[in-house]
C-alpha cells in the first residue's frame, strides 16, 4: 500500500514539472537569410550541416518526442537556445562580414578539434556523427568560403 502512494506521488510530481520551464525555441523553417539559401554551399557540405548542425544552429530544429518531456525538455531547450545565440545559420545573411569570418574560423576549429557537434547530440542522433572525412570537408569549406568573402 505504501508503495502505491510512492508511485502516485512520483507520477504527480512528473505531471507537475511538465508545466514548468520555458517554451522551446520556435521552429520557423528556412528563412530568406539562411546560409544555404543565400550562399553557394557545396551539396555534400549542405547535407552535413543539415544533419549535424542545423537542429541547434538554425530555426529548423526537429524536436524528437522526448524533447517535449520535462526534465529532458529543459536541457534540450536550453542547448538550442544557447546554440542559436552563438550561431544561427537562419540569420546568416544578416551578419556583418567580420562576424561571418569569425564564425567560419570558429566552425573550422571546433569541428576540426571534435568539439562540435556536442558529444551528447550524436548519441541520440547517430546520423549526426561526423567522420574524419566529414570534418575535413567542413573545415575545407570554411576556408574556401572564408577566402571567397574577400574576393567578392
Amino acid at each position: 500500500m505504501k508503495k502505491l502512494w510512492w508511485i502516485i506521488l512520483v507520477l504527480v510530481v512528473f505531471g507537475f514539472i511538465q508545466l514548468l520551464g520555458k517554451r522551446p525555441p520556435a521552429v520557423t523553417g528556412t528563412g530568406s537569410n539562411d546560409l544555404i539559401r543565400t550562399s553557394h554551399v557545396p551539396q555534400q557540405v549542405v547535407t552535413l550541416l543539415r544533419t549535424s548542425c542545423y537542429d541547434c544552429h538554425s530555426n529548423e530544429t526537429h524536436y524528437p518526442w522526448y524533447a517535449h518531456v520535462a526534465p529532458v525538455s529543459w536541457l534540450v531547450n536550453r542547448d538550442v537556445r544557447e546554440a542559436r545565440k552563438a550561431l544561427n545559420f537562419s540569420n546568416w545573411a544578416d551578419l556583418k562580414l567580420s562576424r561571418k569570418l569569425k564564425m567560419l574560423n570558429k566552425i573550422g576549429r571546433e569541428v576540426d578539434e571534435g568539439e562540435m557537434p556536442m558529444f551528447v547530440y550524436p548519441l541520440m542522433h547517430r546520423q549526426a556523427k561526423l567522420s574524419a572525412a566529414d570534418r575535413k570537408l567542413i573545415v575545407e569549406w570554411t576556408e574556401s568560403y572564408g577566402e571567397s568573402l574577400f574576393s567578392e
Binding site: 569570418l101 567560419l104 573550422g108 577566402e147
Partner: peptide, 12 residues
C-alpha cells in the same frame, strides 16, 4: 597566412 586565416588569428 591568407587574409581569411589572418583575420581569424587576430580575432582569436
Amino acid at each position: 597566412l591568407t587574409k581569411f586565416k589572418l583575420v581569424g588569428k587576430l580575432q582569436d
